[in-house]
Design a protein around this nucleic acid. Sequence first.
DNA 1: AAATTTTTGCAACAAAATTGCAATTATTAT
DNA 2: ATAATAATTGCAATTTTGTTGCAAAAATTT
Lengths: 138, 138
Amino acid sequence: MKGASLEILKHNHLSVTESRKKILDLFLANIGALAHADIEKNTGEQFDRVTIYRTLQTFVDKGIIHTIPTADNSVLYALCKDECEQGHHHDNHIHFICDACNITICIDHITIPELKLPKGFAPKRRDVVVSGICNRCN
Amino acid sequence: MKGASLEILKHNHLSVTESRKKILDLFLANIGALAHADIEKNTGEQFDRVTIYRTLQTFVDKGIIHTIPTADNSVLYALCKDECEQGHHHDNHIHFICDACNITICIDHITIPELKLPKGFAPKRRDVVVSGICNRCN
DNA sequence: AAATTTTTGCAACAAAATTGCAATTATTAT
DNA sequence: ATAATAATTGCAATTTTGTTGCAAAAATTT
């Protein structure tokens, strides 16, 4: 488990740096999604804000993490599952946001039912954001 | 059709001002959702940024418009249908974002299918964001 | 039409995000 | 292992986005 971040970086042809390893480790250690501020805090302000922005962008580009649409439009990032390839994310995402503890988690093993859209609409990616009370607060 | 915005404002016990009328007219004239910047442009920079922010907030509070969760976390607003009451929005929203023309529209007449969540999760509100190609670009 | 209430615009401020560039660090080739 | 090359980082400056207090202006009420 210790070299997981390293593996992921190498697999994505990214140079291995302190910031990338630590930030990726954070995602691996966390169930929930992370905001930029979370990362800044959890790395002990070890890295420049700009570095964190760029690292997150790089990870998104490579398909390692993805952004989550939120109702309050804060920017959240979460790990992609293996099915996500560079530039070609897994098309169905369910995210659960807990109103109590405010955690945001990806629920990957549940499939989104087909949606019948009006004529002419060609859906590609579907994001479902469910909010309520999570299993740990319930 | 010309007095629609006026009606809506009166119905919601809001004083009728130039900015509110014009901004509401913009929503009524538009199929798609609008961002703060769109409104600033489309009103010809007639109103102060702050006024637009406050007007949008007022409309959200009254349930006239609602925010849309987006993957790129830009803040979008769209008209609510009649079912939306103040502080109590219609719970099921489908939003479609076109990858080609970038328009975002509410698809209100389609219901979101039930989702089977893992044990312990109590869902309250569901947002569905679908992206792909819209009927006009197709 | 005057009194009252609400809204607006300005200025200042705060937070969030982006860009260019030199210094540093990682990778590649020898 | 070390030098050469390439990529990444941190800093400073800037831009964008959103907020707050307050006096002037506009809308509503009486």
